[in-house]
Simulated assay, not measured.
Amino acid sequence: MKTYKLLILLLLLQSCTAQVEKINGVSFVASKDAVNDAHVNPVINLNANYAAVMPFGFIKSLNSTTLTYNTNRQWFGETAKGVKQYVEALQKHHIKIMIKPQIWVWHGEFTGFIKMTSEANWKAFETSYSKFILEYAVLAEAVNADIFCIGTELETFIKNRPSFWFKLIKKVRAIYKGKLTYAANWDEFKRTPFWGALDFIGIDAYFPVSNVKTPTFEDAMEGWKNHLPEIKAKQKAFNKPILFTEFGYRSVDFSGKEPWKSERSMQGVNLQAQVNTTKALFETFWHQDWFAGGFVWKWFINHNQVGGEQNHMFTPQNKPVERLINSYYKKYE
């Protein structure tokens, strides 16, 4: 009996100290090339257990009604054929998958401003978007993807056509049996109406956390206090885990001020700012039981040729922040 009680005590202590497994993901950027083990091994070395694979559709302007996708003018990894090949290459190494179809507006205009000019045009765009999403939902089911994302940063579309989105979710559910999310922009998620119909509250987590040129870890931790209550309130209201469908900071001066900005005119390389802001994000969220994890933005397939200590963009590859992410992913693997 004493041995039995001791065993129970040890199991209880172990359960209290064990870390909860998280979605430790990378946003696996599409390329013109197929991928192989040499491209996947750096993902494994990061201790990542998930990858977001991202096909693209294109529209010519913010009020275009037709979404173009799966053409021979796109890069391989942006197409259905490429997605399937990427997924299979990653799954071979036990990397789980989120398929995350996205829209690119020509000239890089923000997808959150997509808005049609008439009821007829809205109907046409809805038909085109549904076709895009449902085709990839079929693919997600066929390849046994773990998560499917029904859209990314489309607030005006959602605001103007909420009933369409509820119907779309039902159509996706009829095709795809895995978990569903939507990638809301950091300042959009609080207004997204359909979280109750999904499995994760998805947020592209570019929350401003500091106006300082080189924010310290403490600066960024303090900055999260402005956002954490609202995130927790939304999670509690819907009883759904929070998933950062994208997260990350540029290795640039003022990286915590407006983290969504990708302008190449911002060129002041600041590796420490990237490390400090990223560490604060991990320390704020990864230990929370209501937080599912996230996908770092962004991870290129040609690991040895990208990033580096002179790079001022988002990728963590070959920078000090890569080691930091590795350590947290290992801790919560």
Rank of each mutant, 00 (worst) to 15 (best):
I169R: 01
I169L: 06
I169H: 06
K170H: 09
K171I: 01
K171G: 02
K171Q: 15
K171A: 11
V172L: 05
V172K: 02
R173I: 00
R173T: 00
R173E: 01
A174Q: 09
A174H: 12
A174F: 04
I175F: 05
I175W: 02
I175C: 06
I175M: 06
Y176V: 05
Y176F: 11
K177S: 14
K177V: 08
K177N: 15
K177R: 14
G178T: 09
G178M: 09
G178A: 07
G178N: 03
K179A: 07
K179T: 03
K179Q: 12
K179E: 12
K179I: 05
L180S: 10
L180I: 08
L180H: 03
L180E: 02
T181W: 00
Y182F: 15
Y182M: 03
Y182A: 13
A183F: 01
A184M: 03
A184H: 03
A184F: 07
W186G: 10
W186Q: 03
D187Y: 12
D187N: 15
D187M: 08
D187G: 06
D187I: 05
E188R: 11
F189V: 09
F189M: 08
F189A: 06
F189Y: 15
F189S: 05
F189C: 08
F189Q: 11
F189N: 13
F189P: 09
K190H: 13
K190F: 09
K190T: 12
K190Q: 15
K190Y: 14
R191I: 11
R191L: 11
T192D: 07
P193E: 10
P193T: 10
P193Y: 13
F194I: 12
F194Y: 15
W195S: 01
W195E: 03
W195G: 09
W195R: 01
G196L: 07
G196A: 10
G196E: 13
G196W: 08
A197I: 00
L198D: 08
L198T: 06
L198Q: 08
L198M: 02
D199C: 08
D199N: 15
D199G: 05
D199L: 10
F200Q: 00
F200E: 02
F200H: 13
F200N: 02
F200I: 00
I201D: 09
I201L: 14
I201W: 06
I201H: 10
I201K: 07
G202K: 08
G202L: 09
I203S: 09
I203G: 07
